[in-house]
Simulated scan of single mutants.
Amino acid sequence: MINFVLLISRQGKVRLTKWYSPYSQKERSKVIRELSGLILTRAPKLCNFVEWRGFKVVYRRYASLYFCMCINAEDNELEVLEIIHHFVEILDRYFGSVCELDLIFNFHKAYYILDEILLAGELQESSKKNVARLIAAQDSLVEAAKEESSSITNIIAQAAK
């Protein structure tokens, strides 16, 4: 089971967090501080697995972001590396060569994509096509809601004249 997901920039800024296990706000801050210090200082040639507090943290760097997932000690690290890569491929496909700014300005879409892939810390959907189809459906719903909202606003504005 995945306990949490962190996306951290090279400068140590947190870009996305998703917690699947209960942590208080104080514990979350401590976890982020510890792991960012631990992962950002590791040499690039070291393996992508770190033992931490009886868990394993699996991470991978893509451009300026570290994608980190904390798993139980007995879970398969290579499977989690594949999940990270799967998430990045879907982000790439959606944003067209995803970068840190895409995640900063469209964090809600990044969370939505992550929620389509993982459910309660377990892999939910492994098909990139299904995830892309679900994201496109969500985007069309958002666009329809925006159009409906703007048409209601126009009707109210005309009635007020």
Rank of each mutant, 00 (worst) to 15 (best):
C68E: 02
Q25D: 15
R133V: 01
K13F: 14
N106W: 00
I155W: 09
C70K: 02
H108I: 15
I84M: 10
F67E: 08
S64R: 02
I152V: 13
G54R: 00
R42P: 02
Y59Q: 05
Y94G: 05
A157F: 14
K129C: 12
A73T: 12
Q158H: 12
K45L: 10
R15W: 08
V50M: 04
D75R: 01
S150K: 05
K56P: 01
S21H: 01
A43G: 11
E148I: 09
A160I: 10
N3R: 00
V5R: 00
L103A: 11
I135C: 07
S151Y: 12
K129S: 13
V142R: 05
R10G: 07
F107A: 15
R33P: 06
L35K: 01
A73E: 15
I32G: 01
N76R: 04
A136C: 13
Q124F: 06
A145M: 14
L78T: 12
R133I: 00
R133C: 06
R10H: 06
W52N: 04
L141R: 07
E89Q: 08
Q11D: 15
V14C: 10
V58G: 08
L123C: 11
Y66I: 06
E116Q: 13
I32E: 10
K56M: 07
K18Y: 00
Q124M: 11
L78Q: 08
L35S: 02
S29M: 05
E79A: 11
K128D: 10
L7M: 07
R15I: 08
M69N: 06
H108Q: 13
R28G: 02
D75K: 01
E51Q: 06
Y94E: 11
L46R: 03
R93Y: 11
I39P: 05
R53Q: 13
R15K: 01
C99K: 00
K129W: 13
K146H: 12
S140F: 09
Y94V: 13
T41Q: 06
L134C: 03
N48Q: 08
S140H: 08
S24F: 10
K56A: 03
C47A: 03
A144N: 12
N48M: 03
D92Q: 04
D102R: 02
H86P: 12
I32K: 01
F67G: 05
E143P: 08
V50E: 05
G12E: 04
L123D: 12
L101E: 15
V31F: 02
E77V: 06
E89I: 01
C47Q: 06
A159C: 08
V58L: 12
E27P: 01
T17L: 02
E147V: 09
M1W: 01
I90M: 00
Q11K: 00
R53F: 14
E82T: 10
F49A: 03
N106H: 15
F49Y: 07
P44C: 02
I152D: 15
A132C: 14
L46N: 06
A160Q: 10
V14G: 04
T153H: 11
E125I: 01
C99T: 14
E125M: 01
K30F: 12
F55V: 05
A159I: 07
I90F: 00
Q158F: 13
R60Y: 14
E77W: 09
D102N: 13
F4L: 07
Y111N: 07
K109M: 13
R28V: 03
E125A: 00
N106L: 10
Y23N: 05
L65A: 06
R60G: 10
P22E: 08
R10E: 12
L123H: 05
K30C: 09
I2N: 03
